[in-house]
Lab assay of single mutants.
Amino acid sequence: SSQSQGISSSSTSTMPNSSQSSHSSSGTLSSLETVSTQELYSIPEDQEPEDQEPEEPTPAPWARLWALQDGFANLECVNDNYWFGRDKSCEYCFDEPLLKRTDKYRTYSKKHFRIFREVGPKNSYIAYIEDHSGNGTFVNTELVGKGKRRPLNNNSEIALSLSRNKVFVFFDLTVDDQSVYPKALRDEYIMSKTLGSGACGEVKLAFERKTCKKVAIKIISKRKFAIGSAREADPALNVETEIEILKKLNHPCIIKIKNFFDAEDYYIVLELMEGGELFDKVVGNKRLKEATCKLYFYQMLLAVQYLHENGIIHRDLKPENVLLSSQEEDCLIKITDFGHSKILGETSLMRTLCGTPTYLAPEVLVSVGTAGYNRAVDCWSLGVILFICLSGYPPFSEHRTQVSLKDQITSGKYNFIPEVWAEVSEKALDLVKKLLVVDPKARFTTEEALRHPWLQDEDMKRKFQDLLSEENESTALPQVLAQPSTSRKRPREGEAEGAETTKRPAVCAAVL
């Protein structure tokens, strides 16, 4: 046999249950609850290399294929790409003598399909299967379609040439079993990697079954959420508030809700932002270029202005709740996480202390139980975000031990490091100062900020419009641009040419 590394010779191994799959997660993409704000000051410096380099560890398999027929071997997927077919160049070659004697062998292509993985959001991997055969590759009886790919989820059954000719079961060793999710959700989405997690739940990458488009699904544990919100009269209202707010909003710089499922837990389906959180971008770069800050901040102002015009105060604006559309420097941003939002009543007064301390406005800290506050709290938070983006460190921090965090904020005395700000323009610093004003009545509004000289930049605004146009074009394009080929190089076993392929839609398939 010419099988590559990772293939075992026996096809009769006992199949494990899916609970053996491991679970991976990374930083929070968007969480309903406010958790302790991640610290920006503690960015690790590059460490000196050791005298002796450690040995390379043996790579762990990321997936496993269990053979369902004699003549096929099990495969431990270690590499990122595997070709399957009769050709000797394939990493998994159909060359077992037992297999060659079967009637089905002649229906398999020289290069029938490939399984591979690509880097997705949060640097996690996504597994795909890609059909290159004349007679078809099927996943859970659905045709992939020649020249098309679809994501592979845990426990997928792979069939060759005929939908009933099941050859492998695919085990993704990095994700959960699909069966743990409600059927209504599974009918519409293929669940994938964990993108982030918080005290009350997690955010998962998923794929729409009909279109193969990526989405983010925010899962909120009702049990954990009820415990964490025990002081509230009705904890469920917080989730329902977020859903109702998101459904009503329609702005290019605000995250869109696509679906909602109320089962044992809450499942909020949101558009996916491939670039992750602004927080991670700031930490990764230490600070952002001023031109990049301007492009992002302009969009934040437009989003918050839209919220305020619609009578909504976000109340928890922070870099973790600003998501980026891509890994590119120039990209769209979207505001997310409306769990603490407040729809303005007639009095415009709110007395609930919520939000993240580092970003809270002075009037929030001094008015607990005594007075109210209004939309100006969001403008203060925007000032803190702009400060961080321009400088790479927070204006107020618990680690300045000589003054408490509350006193720093209520006095408006931010930590100004001259040598850092020497590289920032006077106009940018002036806008920061106009937003970090203790008196909410004297603080800049979103309208005033948008009129500030720093943002009178036609090149930046043109760039934003171009990015918007690109997004609109990409969302308007159909996901499947061509029909699967019906040509046949070899006959199917026991049926006429093209008899099955043309009847089945290529579900969740995307043209390369």
Rank of each mutant, 00 (worst) to 15 (best):
E242D: 03
I243F: 10
K247N: 08
K247M: 13
N250I: 14
C253G: 09
I254H: 05
I255F: 04
I257Q: 05
N259T: 06
N259Q: 11
D262W: 00
D262I: 11
A263Q: 05
A263P: 05
E264R: 05
Y266Q: 13
Y267L: 10
I268P: 01
V269Y: 02
L272R: 15
E274V: 12
G276L: 11
E277P: 03
F279W: 10
K281F: 10
V282C: 08
V283Q: 04
K286N: 14
K286L: 08
K286T: 13
E290P: 13
E290S: 08
C293T: 05
Y296N: 11
Y296W: 12
Y296P: 00
Y298Q: 14
Q305R: 10
Y306I: 09
N310Y: 15
G311I: 02
G311L: 09
I313C: 02
I313V: 07
R315T: 04
D316T: 03
D316R: 00
D316P: 00
L317M: 14
L317R: 02
K318D: 03
P319C: 01
L323Y: 06
E329Y: 12
T336D: 03
T336H: 00
D337L: 00
D337A: 00
L344N: 15
T347D: 12
T352L: 03
C354D: 02
T356W: 01
T358Q: 08
L360N: 09
A361C: 02
P362R: 00
P362G: 00
P362F: 07
E363T: 01
S367D: 09
G369W: 15
G372K: 04
Y373V: 04
C379F: 06
S381F: 00
L382E: 05
I388M: 12
Y393D: 03
V403S: 06
Q408M: 06
Y414S: 04
F416N: 06
V420M: 11
A422L: 15
A422T: 05
E426F: 12
L429R: 08
K433Q: 01
A449K: 03
A449L: 00
A449M: 15
L450E: 13
L450Q: 06
H452V: 10
Q456R: 09
D457K: 12
E458Q: 13
M460L: 02
M460N: 10
K461E: 07
R462M: 07
E470G: 13
N472A: 00
S474C: 14
L477P: 15
Q479A: 01
V480D: 13
V480E: 00
Q483M: 08
P484V: 04
R488G: 05
P491S: 07
P491L: 12
E493I: 00
G494R: 12
A496R: 12
A496L: 05
E500T: 12
K503M: 11
A510V: 06
A510I: 13
V511T: 12
